[in-house]
Design a protein around this nucleic acid. Structure first.
Length: 435
RNA sequence: GCAGGGGUUCCCGAGUGGCCAAAGGGAUCAGACUGUAAAUCUGACGCGCAAGCUUCGGUGGUUCGAAUCCACCCCCCUGCACCA
């Protein structure tokens, strides 16, 4: 028999992970008095989840650890339609085969976070295409559509801007999204006795829609809870860097890059992020906070956060790889790297490229670095060269040497006859293999 | 459909015949300082190592010369009308 951790809601509250809930105090008692089944949905809008999906995904795990049964729903059907919630403009539809492909990828990713073999509250992964795909239009209109009032729907905050805005508009397709998601909840209630849906705060409208539908179709009593949108103290968008979205797929964002992302968290955000994203207890986090405050200089929190996150998403091996690269590069002891270390750096996800020695003379250094995506334009490399911010195997290069890439990558300077670590600025590293 | 306003470099936003690759701010990149922070200061910021090349919704035109003037077209906003 599964033990229920009755303090779950209280813990979530203290972590700042609860934006809104339905049912008020009833929900706390409901969750404390038995193992419940809950779900959260993930639509296949790309071939990988990104860190924006982490809060609901980890919340499923928190519920599971507290004794509840999580269902991760991958939106093979809803992904074909597109959620209009708080979106400024109509989105373009992806083809069914692309969505199906993405659905499979998300299923695999999601599955790594929750436990499928822990007795009564083992997790499940479902795809809403399995039930929505079988439904015919008339049944949908009669059985589902009949329960929705257009009057209520157009009053939802999530679609307001699309209705109000001149020139934007909303198609019937996207407008119908809420019905699909609501139907998911009703269906999961009916099939799995799923009585709680969680999601991002932008999902409130869709979640309450589902609660109403479950009641109307099956007289079911269900609950909803939303998690906060992750914000940063400086007002910029969480989860994006200059180089783009931070993905959970190691092929899209390497464990090293992922580690660096968390390591660079601002002091003003790091303790909040520890509460949001890690499974460290609140008292442990408070302790870290206090210790950092007492110590002069560099706080430990970022490093703890980075380690926790990489271990969570990429496992022990991913963490070791990320730390190995980071230490080699940032400790200044690159000389100590062995040939196999350098090869490992490549495998570990340090950006790298292979170039032909015979082609070196064809382009100036600026162009080689631009081609390797180290900088957006040759001008930036030129600026860096002028400031002594470009190093090849530890040797500073100057603008005068720009035209002579062959001597910048001189054979005599190569590590193990082929490797060059190029550093641009303080944080950008790239491994060149010249053959 | 009619009337009025507008589309400028990643974003906001100046510029209304040469001094404009185009003010200013933001974002971004690099340097100093630091903790691979923050704040601050400095430099860069269409592309090109360079000569030089390509931009100001689109197409044509006027002119020695246009982001700036003219014509037509496309798109957006604001009123009015039409529709209901």
């Amino acid at each position: 028999m599964t033990t229920i951790d009755a303090s779950l809601l209280d813990d979530l509250q203290k972590r700042g992970l609860i934006a809104q809930t339905t049912g008020g105090d009833v929900l706390a008692g409901y969750l404390a008095s038995g193992s419940r089944t809950l779900y959260s949905g993930f639509d296949p809008t790309a071939d990988s989840l990104h860190i924006g999906h982490l809060v609901p995904l980890l919340a499923l795990k928190r519920f599971q650890l507290a004794g509840h049964k999580p269902i991760a729903l991958v939106g093979g059907a809803t992904g074909l339609v597109g959620d209009p919630s708080f979106k400024a403009a109509e989105r373009k539809l992806n083809t069914p085969d692309i969505v199906a492909n993405w659905t499979d990828k998300l299923k695999a990713q999601v599955s790594r976070f929750i436990d499928f073999d822990c007795g009564d509250n083992s997790a499940e992964v479902v795809n809403n295409l399995d039930w929505v795909g079988k439904m015919d239009v008339l049944s949908f209109l009669r059985d589902v559509g009949k329960h929705f009032s257009i009057n209520n729907m157009i009053n939802k905050e999530s679609v307001k801007q699309r209705l109000d805005r001149e020139g934007a508009g909303i198609s019937f397709t996207e407008f119908t999204y809420m019905l699909l998601q609501s139907y998911d909840f009703a269906e999961l209630y009916n099939r799995h006795n799923c009585t709680l849906q969680i999601g991002g705060s932008d999902q409130w409208g869709n979640i309450t829609g589902g609660i109403d539908l479950a009641r109307r179709m099956y007289s079911g009593e269900t609950y909803g809870m939303t998690l906060p949108l992750v914000t940063k103290s400086d007002g910029t968008k969480f989860g994006k860097t200059e180089s783009g979205t931070i993905w959970l797929d190691p092929d899209k964002t390497s464990p090293y890059a992922f580690y660096q992302f968390w390591l660079n968290t601002a002091d003003a955000d790091v303790y909040k992020f520890l509460r949001y994203f890690t499974f460290l207890s609140l008292s442990e986090i408070t302790e870290i906070d206090e210790r950092d405050r007492a110590a002069e200089g560099r706080p430990e929190a970022q490093s703890i956060l980075a380690r926790e996150m990489v271990a969570l998403i990429h496992g022990k091996e991913g963490l070791e790889a990320a730390v190995r690269i980071s230490e080699a590069l940032f400790s200044g002891s690159m000389d100590s790297l062995s040939e196999s270390d350098l090869e490992q750096l490549k495998l570990d996800g340090l950006p790298s490229s292979t170039i032909m020695r015979s082609e070196l003379a064809e382009k100036p250094l600026t162009q080689w670095l631009v081609d390797a995506a180290m900088a957006a334009s040759g001008k930036q490399v030129k600026d860096a060269l002028g400031r002594g911010a470009v190093f090849i195997n530890g040797e500073p290069k100057t603008f005068e040497q720009n035209g002579d890439a062959a001597s910048c990558f001189a054979a005599a300077d190569a590590r193990f006859n082929r490797f060059y670590i190029v550093k641009l600025g303080k944080k950008k590293y790239h491994l060149f293999e010249v053959v």
